[in-house]
Design a protein around this nucleic acid. Sequence first.
RNA 1: GUGGCUGUAGCUCAGUUGGUUAGAGCGUCGGAUUGUGAUUCCGAAGGUCGCGGGUUCGACCCCCGUCAGCCACCCCA
Length: 416
Amino acid sequence: MAKLQPVRGTHDLLSDDIRRHQHIIEQFRRIAERYTYTQIDTPIFEFTEVFNRTLGETTDVVTKEMYTFDDRSGDSLTLRPEFTAGIARAFISNGLSQNLPLKLYAYGPMFRHERPQKGRQRQFHQLDVEILGVAEPQADIEVIALGAQLLDTLGLAGKVTLELNTLGDSESRIAYRDVLVDYFNDSRDRLSEEAQERLERNPLRILDSKDKRDREVVAGAPAMSDYLNEASADFFASVRTGLDQLGIAYQLNEQLVRGFDYYTHTAFEFTTELLGAQSAVLAGGRYDGLIGTMGGPATPGIGWGSGIERLAMLIDEPPAVDRPVVIVPVGDRAAKEGLTLLQELRHAGISADMGAKGNVGKRMKQANKANARYVVLMGDDELDAGVVTLRDLDGGEQQQVARGDLMAALSGGDAA
RNA sequence: GUGGCUGUAGCUCAGUUGGUUAGAGCGUCGGAUUGUGAUUCCGAAGGUCGCGGGUUCGACCCCCGUCAGCCACCCCA
């Protein structure tokens, strides 16, 4: 390590980047609150058990991507690679089953030890939404509608496509799985090595393989939709009807499979073509069995996660920030008075600053660099006359304003 | 974990077949201008050429290793 550099796959968030992130989080919070979700925050690390039991022992995230370490007490801990397992754990730990249904939102950093690439880092940030305790398709519809509105608000409506599928309930899934395994076994030698391995552990994942050989075999595979039992088929039909009713467009994708084992029924992904190989921008699904398998009371759940970095890359321009008023004092008397004025402006809700040193020329330069809209110039002349000089940096014109009228001039219409 | 491409100033990049003291633009700082910015002019600072080793009289340049970035595979948000 020659220079002091950040850990691989981590990133400092500076100026434009952090503003994009904050903007996304603000919009997310606003919309989630409007849908009457309440915020939850869980620790960024959990006992390793929480993740490797729930995500599926054989998923790649668990087997090779988790930041797992023993702490000083000898407990095996893991930096969270996703939100849902931690929230489910919190649900059980806090006995939240007394308060169903629960509608929760959260955001924060996630950690996965992957090879960095476009739209993928080792520490990244996610938005997350969960509904616990609603078995009806209305929850699926709502959660997707929330995601759609968020993407729309961020200006991404034309850049993403909603893909939708159902994995059915566990009965349907097992039935389908058996048929699928039989089918793949018949064509085993035509599958890629990875797919052949997956056949043992997680055959559904073969459906979304990108390997050309696999794709050919998958093209002739039996379809999930033919193996749904009546309840699962009805459930999915209700979800679709609801989305249609709300005018939310989607594409059915029978090859859409979720990465973690806990998913059932509805699976969805908002995808984009603009981020290279990382197409999923907001993705989730239903996980009715999760909390039960973790040892909690059987509780249905559905939710999604969305990568803030990926959203940030799709946003055109970071939102504008308030342009400050900059005070430029001339002389010690004015500098002292400027301190008071600065406080008045800030207390009045106006973004304001005053440099600590430099002559007028330098201070003007700094004001310009700070993207100030107005400069308040004050020296002995102004102090004696009880006025300030207000200069508009865009137009270049300036005027004398009575000190008592300054606040009104800046916050009111005539100056701004 | 695998593969491809790339590492030269704060940023974007030049740098001849291996040959003195590594350059430019932007940015930064200072001055022209101690009460007026963004335009203009003058000047300055800023580099272990990612790091380590090797070849050579001599390496930014060639070779090996390593670290990092980007992209793809895998996987996923």
